Amino acid sequence: MPDPDDQRLYFLLQRAAHRLRTTADRRCLAAAGVTTAQLGALFAVHDEAGVTQQQLARTLGLRESAVTGLVGRLTAAGLLAKRPHPREHRAVVLELTDAGTDALRAAQPEIDRFNTELREALGDDGFTGAATAMHRLAYWES
């Protein structure tokens, strides 16, 4: 049985992140045919019209090389489209396709269910506190 007094925060964060990611990936793949990493990219493109791959990499906190592969897979799957940037000749602008929009719509109920289950597991205060703490850590600069 795990020790409820375990204070190894980094270890616990890694373990929790892995558990949450694998569970959410399984559910999102079943609901919409995409992983959570792919959904993150689709949501970012949806939320920021005219986003470039470089901007997407910053938004997702990933290296540009990782985003190049991710965008390549999403483009090959027909979920994203690229068009030339209007001012930067080497850059491309990313856009959701109709299939990408459909994938977001298909995933949303599962995302909502997952968040509801997390809120039930943690309680409202615990869920809000965890979200606040994760936001602080995500943008923490040491």
Rank of each mutant, 00 (worst) to 15 (best):
M1H: 15
P2V: 12
D3N: 13
D3G: 05
P4H: 04
D5G: 03
D6L: 04
L9Y: 04
F11W: 12
L12I: 01
Q14M: 07
A17P: 06
R21C: 13
T22W: 03
D25V: 02
C28T: 09
C28E: 06
A30W: 04
A30S: 09
Q38V: 01
G40I: 11
G40F: 10
A41F: 04
L42T: 09
L42H: 11
F43G: 11
V45Q: 08
D47N: 13
D47Q: 09
D47G: 13
G50F: 04
V51K: 03
V51S: 09
L56F: 01
S65C: 14
S65Y: 04
T68A: 15
G69I: 07
G69W: 06
V71S: 02
L74W: 00
L74I: 00
A76S: 12
A77H: 00
A81T: 10
A81I: 10
R83N: 09
P84H: 05
H85S: 06
P86G: 06
R87H: 08
E88L: 12
E88Y: 03
R90P: 01
V92C: 10
E95N: 12
E95P: 05
L96M: 11
A99S: 13
G100T: 09
G100K: 07
G100P: 02
T101A: 08
A103H: 13
A103D: 07
R105D: 15
A107D: 08
P109T: 08
E110I: 00
F114S: 03
N115L: 15
R119L: 15
L122A: 13
D124R: 08
D125Q: 03
G126N: 07
F127V: 04
T128K: 12
M134W: 07
M134K: 06
A138H: 05
A138W: 06
E141K: 14
